[in-house]
Design a protein around this nucleic acid. Structure first.
Lengths: 206, 206, 206, 206
DNA sequence: AATGAATGAGTGTTCATTCAT
DNA sequence: TATGAATGAACACTCATTCAT
């Protein structure tokens, strides 16, 4: 039994992970606190002692899930080389990374629950990740503009359109993360999205 | 007694309309059959007599809602003039019409519930409207291609990207139909989408 | 099966009787709705359908219990002959009747619950029976005063003191209705109370 | 370490005081051990270490409360001058003191809880204070009889009736200690009680 | 065909009590 | 000895569903 280092924190984490699983699968209304407790390996009152009620548990789990998703998306954006040898290839890699984030089981679950339930939870309103992602991506695109690799356009707008051209389509095709999107399909979607993006914002027009 | 208009069929309709309201607002799990019955002005067993159980009621209501949404989208697509005087203006009108469909209270509700619940209802899988809309739009774009108003591209792909460039962004901005999207915002989104679309698929490149 | 005449009303009654039993025995906080349902022979939701929640059930049961107790007390008071052959005997009969009401299992239970819980239920404040009883008794005593059988005193005051001299002592001795008060003990208490009452309010002073 | 005054014993006391407060306000069933611990400034297990379980805590707290109430009542009784200049005045002072004891917040709480819960706690049966009070008062009245200030009656009986004539009425009027009884009202009640008491047991009859 | 009333099976939540430190 | 944290057992209340009329 080498791995119960910190009972308290590890239980907190186990509860949140379990809650994220269950709420991600079943949504808020159908998410069952009993099942969360069982999956987390704790008694139900432990959950209530820590989080107060189901709503607060949901909020905490969603905040965690959103933070994780956020981190993955941010990492994908930051991984882009602002001075790539080949811009198209670089953007395709970025698009594929973003699409993977959104259509993964966890990412899709977060999106689904946000669409379905989040409006009822004002506590979650501030955490809207989408705008953060757009901002981060816009920053990168601004670099590409600055270095002359993209035309001088509004980077926010370009970022938004890059997002929908890659991830919106992928989300729809993956059933919002419920069925895994085969890699080739994702790549095809992304390639087409990048084509259009570059047609609109790229420099290399004869 | 020539079958009062306000009898069997009208009750059926009232139930479905009420169910669509409630499920659209609360989702499947939180949608309350009692409230549906009350809003429809019928007794609860009437609903069960007609529809069997909550699932079947949900499916029937969603089918109705999807059909209605479908009709509106199809009308918007069909309204496009395949030989427009000004293509950009025509596409902007189309995009605005589509965006309006999706971000209306009813349209948004349908989308939300589909994202959240529909996967659990295989009965609804066949009715996926999105593919129908894409197909219809692709047909129109094929006409534009045939008449040389657009470049010779895959009309399915063009249709998909037209969709995401206009409606995906609008959906996000309207909170999936929960907060009304001001018309100017919609128009700005659509104009930018059409810009990009035309940059990628339009003919008029110097 | 001759005795299920009116399912609806008889269920209502059964629930209230059961609730009165249980709440009378256990008080509000410890009274168990499950047990009430079981004893009433109905399902728990039937109780909630009819009464809304535990508080409302308690209030309804207490109102019933108080009305019943009230009726018994009022009957005892009204049974007093305002022109008795022997005043002392008549008052002793009255006192015994009142004492019996208060120290019976049902009467005592009502008093206990009122003392313990009623303050938390403003809905019950208006139904305070004690004042009604005092008033009724005062009316009778006023008759005795009018006919010269008692001295000319404040009938309200006399009524109050008659009450405490007979029932307060009996209540204490019976453990507020929890242990039955042997009839001779009751009679002794009442006789002493009447003695004192007549010493203070009676006419026949040498 | 000369046993800080604020240690073991003071915690014991704090727990009992808190328990008395809470149980007095809410009764046994609704009394919350968490709240008691919090109010006493100790952790919950401390209570369980000391008292074993909620029942035992209740019993201990009630014993304390009853002892305190007892002390106050006894003091009131003992304060009576057995050879008063004016008997009526003396008895009125006694009655007012007793009434104040019973209708004070603490005294009323004890009475309420005894009525509501005490029967379930055989451990408390022996401590019934009422009989002690009666006995003490009877002792005083016996002195008054011995000195010819009251007629030769059974002092126990006289004590009981003195009690109900003063405190029973006051208890009822104060909602068993829940609403403070204005001093003039108390005095009026007591004066009337003493009137009747003296009519029955006093010497000075023409 | 329609309904008022009833119900079985949960579900969130609480609370007295105990474990581990 | 004192405590932060955990838990088993219950409890009030709800809801989809069905019965009887």
């Amino acid at each position: 039994m080498a791995s119960l280092p910190n009972s308290h924190e590890s239980k907190q984490a186990a509860i949140l992970v379990a809650a994220l699983d269950i709420f991600g699968r079943d949504g808020f209304a159908d998410g069952n606190v009993d099942e969360i407790a069982q999956r987390a390996g704790v008694a139900k009152p432990t959950i209530y002692n820590r989080f107060g009620d189901k709503r607060a548990l949901f909020v905490a789990a969603m905040k965690l899930g959103m933070a994780q998703a956020n981190e993955r998306v941010m990492a994908a954006v930051q991984a882009m080389n602002p001075r790539p040898a080949d811009l198209r290839t670089e953007l395709e890699a970025l698009g594929a990374a973003l699409g993977t984030c959104m259509t993964s089981a966890e990412g899709g679950a977060i999106v689904r629950v946000q669409v379905a339930d989040a409006a009822r939870f004002p506590e979650l309103a501030g955490d809207n990740q989408r705008e953060l992602h757009i901002d981060a991506l816009a920053g990168k695109l601004a670099q590409l503009i600055a270095t002359g690799q993209l035309r001088a356009v509004d980077p926010q707008l370009a970022a938004r359109q890059f997002m929908v051209l890659t991830t919106a389509e992928a989300l729809n095709r993956s059933g919002y993360g419920r069925k895994p999107l085969p890699r080739p399909v994702l790549e095809e979607i992304v390639a087409a999205g990048v084509d259009t993006f570059l047609a609109a914002f790229g420099k290399d027009r004869p």
